[in-house]
Design a binder for these strands. Structure first.
Length: 281
DNA sequence: AAGGGAGTCAACCGCGTCAGC
DNA sequence: GGCTGACGCGGTTGACTCCCT
């Protein structure tokens, strides 16, 4: 015999969560901790599927989530992690502990994919001056009831217990990383301003076919434009980020990522440098 | 002012993996 | 070892908002 069924689909409510439902869910998790999602609907009386409860918690109600206003540093991280790991949003999110995989996925699909396409078209042009992406993206404000709910939950978050978590992503979220919203950040592509992370030469080398043993801009199978970095590297990393014990020399791209973390994203290093290295290498 | 298209994001769906029995 | 269900993940959808005509 296996486990009992998750939830019968009869009478299951769908659609947006109400603040009342949020409060019920949060109160329950406050008392019992996250996990055992199957029991959540029955114990709380929520007419929601356990899956929906888990999703609501992990993507929205979980403490420590930062919403909206992706910094340029975060943007750069996403771009490069996506190039290395592909569309493995959970893995990417583990390096951006304040962001959910859903958030990153949405941001990629709505902002970065377009930006990368634009960049792809300009890559053929001789001047890197035109490679500066539109930096207004990160300035959008997140307008929803989230803030109200956040305020609602603030009191709980202060006194919230720190349950033992299983995944690295969940572990990261418990590390109480200071918000990077106001952190001075630089952008990989902000070359002309002089404040960029990398110089023209470095950017050129990053984009160089020779240096990356086969960098290419391609259409992925899902019709999303992806930046395929060093092919061998991608192949090596992609299969299993959990291949912790496989060591190899750093690529230029990976070095940049690590340097970036050390230089600007100190929170990243404080966070879990070992995890970062182990997962990548 | 109204209608339509584009953009955004929360939530759902389906599949693969893991774990209990 | 096989079956079954929970969990986690990535892709997709649909509702909502904004902007343009």
């Amino acid at each position: 015999m296996g486990r009992p069924p998750c939830c019968d689909k009869v009478g299951i409510k769908k659609g947006p969560w109400t603040p009342e439902e949020d409060i019920i869910l949060v109160s329950y998790i406050q008392q019992n901790g996250p996990g055992n999602w199957r029991s959540v609907p029955t114990n709380t009386g929520l007419m929601r599927c356990s899956k929906s409860c888990r999703l609501r918690w992990t993507n929205y109600l979980r403490p420590g989530i930062k919403r909206g206003n992706f910094t340029q540093h975060e943007e750069g991280m996403i771009i490069h992690l996506q190039a290395m790991l592909g569309n493995r949003w959970a893995a990417i999110a583990s390096y951006l502990p304040q962001r959910t995989d859903n958030d990153i996925k949405n941001y990629w699909n709505t902002h970065l994919k377009k930006k990368m396409k634009k960049l792809q078209t300009t890559i053929d042009q001789p001047s890197y001056e035109s490679m500066k992406p539109d930096m207004n993206v990160g300035s959008s404000t997140y307008a929803s009831s989230t803030e109200n709910i956040s305020r609602l939950l603030e009191g709980w978050m202060r006194s919230s217990p720190k349950p033992i978590l299983k995944t690295s992503q969940e572990k990261h979220t418990q590390l109480n990383i200071p918000s990077t919203t106001n952190t001075t950040t630089t952008n990989l592509f902000d070359v002309s301003s002089g404040g960029g992370v990398i110089s023209n030469e470095e950017l050129e080398s990053l984009l160089s076919y020779d240096n990356m043993s086969g960098i290419a801009w391609e259409k992925s199978s899902t019709d999303s434009t992806v930046f395929h970095g060093c092919q061998s590297m991608v192949e090596e990393v992609k299969p299993r980020a959990e291949d912790h014990h496989h060591h190899r020399p750093l690529s230029l791209l990976e070095k940049w990522l690590l340097d970036e973390s050390a230089g600007h994203g100190e929170e990243m290093m404080e966070l879990d440098t070992d995890c970062f290295s182990n997962t990548l290498f």
